[in-house]
Design a binder for these strands. Structure first.
Lengths: 338, 338
DNA sequence: AAGTGATTCTACAACGTTGTAGGAAACGGT
DNA sequence: ACCGTTTCCTACAACGTTGTAGAATCACTT
């Protein structure tokens, strides 16, 4: 049913290869021939068979994106940015959900299904640094996020430590000294939680505020409910605090809700800042101060770097690491009390 | 580098086709031969080249999903459900973002890029019923949502009218009589807004409550900010109301925020219900009553129907329409005032 | 012992594209 | 008029897979 090069060639009275050459902008073609071919193409409504092209060339023009879950706003917004970045470079995106499950993540790295894509942007959650060797795979791979460092692949991430330090410093600058944390991961050193906690402690140190372990609320997942639960625990513990640093916006929003239920005024009694700059924080009550982690820059860099690896021009370069620029965004939840 | 059928055939001492037969579970193969082939396959780490397979068979095992924007939580959760439904059926999902732009939507319908997929799940936003003829395309297409009815394709949707009626009836049952609407579209008849408004009016009629046009807040987009703006306009208009039906959760959350800023207590002064059952509504303050539109059922049906069309078994069936079952979910925002 | 049908396997062609090699015509300089 | 170079185009092969047709073997039946 669909027209092929053969049909177009027949209609234009040239060889198949000439049509192919016209399509691929080969330079030595007579203007007249080109015109005839193009006419035939539009007439027949020809469009290249991408399977055949990909079989021949080894490229599909599709990249994979593996994230834990699109339901989590952070990854939805990340996917959004990445699809847009890919589109700018003429690539399509095939999305896989790992559920944050280590076994599922390893499976995706080993899966032959990925032959349909030229490379993979991979945001692991269940895997840890010890699994880094699984990242040595036979296809171009770019790592997103901070579960694994020093792996064999390119790595694009946000400035977790510095931006968490800036977020904490922001609260300190607002006069807060007892800054609770929502979303720590026990015994984690790398990983978003570990890094952001490090930034938090650095900021405290710079401000000469002693670190109080009782102020750190731990959790496993970073869903809304975890933010709520952790905040309930903090309140129940009786520890005093005048500010909260949510390890991400979702946690912060969950925590805010519990704070408000408990009758604490935000920001008057407790100032809150989150992390991620999700759309939601712009319309919460109060609006949520946050860290803009440079998602568009991350997406753009990741796609660019992956494309470089795919094209092979930099195939033999050692793995590189990229950190996006961040920004503190002040909204109502941490505004100076009026 | 990657092993092919040829390599496996050589290693196992059989013909290429026999290997192919083993892979495709052809029944007449001696157990011994099968074993040898399978051994060779694992030894060489062979996995089929999907481009070649797809060129030969015309199938890629990938379906496309075109939505306005993943940034919008509704579509993120829809995509999440669809990826999971597709995975259950052995399909991968390639996601395109239209931005809700009509031109972009038409382009995707006409795009040759879709050759990489076996079919498309399409959730139009910019297109209207008059564009229905553009849906006559050369590939399997299943429509999601309610911009277009009676088109030439299968159609999977939620029960907009009935569920909106149920949402409104829910507010009526809580004793509310002045029910404002946030998110109407001017002059729209079909489309989510038009249908949900119809359900709203039906419920009023059944309850013997006259319809008051002043209670309907119109907007163009269904983002958080639109909910906020529309609610501000309603408040400014001075019209009295004791309940709000948000055409979706996002609008309802935006409206709730403005109501709270204005000092209205929810649900005591104003009861609020939304539509979509987004995760967000579960952790807002107060938690948001809503309609669960049966997203998983929609996703599952849509993928199943698309797969049926792809397989061609039902290729000549007339277009079918499916409506998912809905459910009213009562949360704090519309609980009986204590 | 021959015929019938099922079983097991193979050779070949084809899917639609692009790379390679090379031929014919046109051009430029002597 | 000749040679070398550039321009324009074509024929062929190959990417890795699967469908078709058919050959060879086996198991039964008569």
């Amino acid at each position: 049913m669909a027209a092929t090069l053969r049909d177009v060639a027949l209609a234009a009275g040239v060889s198949i290869k000439t049509v192919s050459n016209v399509i691929n902008d080969y330079e030595h073609i007579r203007a007249d021939t080109k015109r005839r071919v193009l006419e035939a193409i539009t007439e027949l409504g020809y469009s290249p068979n991408l399977s055949a092209r990909s079989l021949r060339s080894g490229r599909t023009g599709v990249i994979g994106l593996a994230v834990p879950e699109l339901k989590l706003s952070y990854f939805a917004e990340l996917a959004d940015s990445i699809i847009k970045a890919a589109e700018r470079r003429g690539l399509k995106v095939l999305i896989e959900q790992t559920g944050g499950d280590r076994a599922h993540e390893l499976e995706i790295l080993a899966s032959p299904r990925l032959q349909l894509t030229d490379g993979l942007l991979f945001s692991p959650l269940g895997m840890s640094n010890e699994d880094a060797h699984y990242l040595t795979v036979g296809f171009p791979l770019v790592l997103l996020g901070e579960r694994i460092f020093g792996g064999p692949t390119d790595h694009v991430t946000m400035s977790n430590v510095e931006s968490a330090r800036a977020a904490t410093a922001h609260l300190v600058a607002r006069g807060r000294r007892r800054i609770a944390v929502v979303g720590g991961h026990l015994d984690e050193v790398i990983g978003s939680a570990g890094l952001r906690l490090r930034g938090y402690r650095q900021a405290l140190e710079e401000a000469g505020i002693p670190f109080d372990p009782a102020l750190v609320g731990y959790t496993t997942l970073w869903h809304r409910s975890n933010g709520a639960t952790t905040m309930r625990e903090l309140l129940a513990s009786g520890v005093g605090f005048d500010a909260v640093f949510g390890m991400n916006d979702t946690l912060a929003l969950g925590a805010m809700r519990v704070l408000q239920e408990a009758g604490r005024r935000i920001p008057d009694d407790v100032a809150v800042i989150g992390f991620d700059d999700l759309d939601e924080g712009r319309y919460s009550l109060p609006t949520l101060s946050t860290i803009d982690p440079g998602r568009d820059e991350i997406a753009d860099t990741a796609v660019r770097v992956l494309q470089e690896r795919i094209s092979g021009r930099k195939g033999d370069m050692p793995p590189r690491a990229f950190e996006a620029r961040f920004q503190v965004i002040e909204r109502e939840s941490s505004a100076l009390a009026g």
